[in-house]
């Protein structure tokens, strides 16, 4: 049976309405997810925890992203934005990242 309903099932992949400039960041976020989850079988709108993630892996992702951009972010940013697309948007809107991108 595959009737998991709206919970726990991936919605269709994001089609990229928010402009091309987010693509490099999205690719980086996605690549961090792949590294820690050790698979790439998840959609860009899929919840990290449904994809097999846990909070220790969140720390690994955020430490790596922070180091890459030379910025500090609170872990709760991830918990509030637990999909690739949401996290990409949240990071892009984050003051520290904006400053780092300048």
């Amino acid at each position: 049976m595959d009737n998991f309903g709206p919970v726990g099932v991936a919605s269709p992949d994001h089609t990229g309405h928010d402009g091309p400039d987010l693509e490099p960041l999205r690719a980086q976020v996605r690549s961090q997810w792949v590294d820690v989850l050790e698979h790439d079988d998840f959609g860009d709108d899929e919840d990290f925890f449904d994809a097999g993630g846990n909070s220790l892996l969140v720390a690994e992702i955020m430490a790596a992203l922070g180091a890459e951009f030379g910025v500090r972010v609170e872990l709760r940013l991830f918990f509030a934005h637990p999909t690739v697309n949401e996290l990409t948007g949240a990071l892009a809107a984050h003051e520290a990242f904006k400053a780092a991108a300048r």
Binding site: G5, P6, V7, G8, V36, L37, E38, D47, F49, G52, N54, L56, L57
Partner: peptide, 20 residues
């Protein structure tokens, strides 16, 4: 999972499945 345990719940809804 990797790095330890997590909690996962399964439920049977009375009607339609609920939003997480």
């Amino acid at each position: 999972g990797r790095r330890g345990r997590t909690l996962a719940a399964f439920y049977v809804p009375t009607a339609e499945p609920l939003a997480k």
